[in-house]
Amino acid sequence: MLGVATGSFGESQATLEEFVEQTGISFPVVWDDGTYGLWDFPDAISPYPRQVVIGAGGRVVYLASEHQEEALDRAVQQAL
């Protein structure tokens, strides 16, 4: 799992480090260096969040523009 952070909207290294510390995130947080546009995300309300699940075989199994817990759970279970 990678948390992919936007480089826009005034986000900075300091903001992100503080955020990671506050939230106790243990997975790697990386910068989005132009990968957002690689995916054909479905119709969205806002630019974030976006979620991508890729199966072990390298195929995209899930793309979502909002956090939908049950659907995401199913996709992750399926990918595992």
């Binding site: 799992m1 990678l2 992919v4 936007t6 947080v29 990386v30 990968t35 991508v52 699940v53």
Partner: peptide, 24 residues
């Protein structure tokens, strides 16, 4: 990543990957 380390999708082949695009 925040420490400067590089992560490549190609290197993760064989494992499922979850990318969560977010903003703070």
């Amino acid at each position: 990543d925040l420490e400067g380390g590089e992560h490549r999708l190609e290197d993760l082949e064989g494992s499922p990957v979850f990318l969560a695009y977010f903003a703070t």
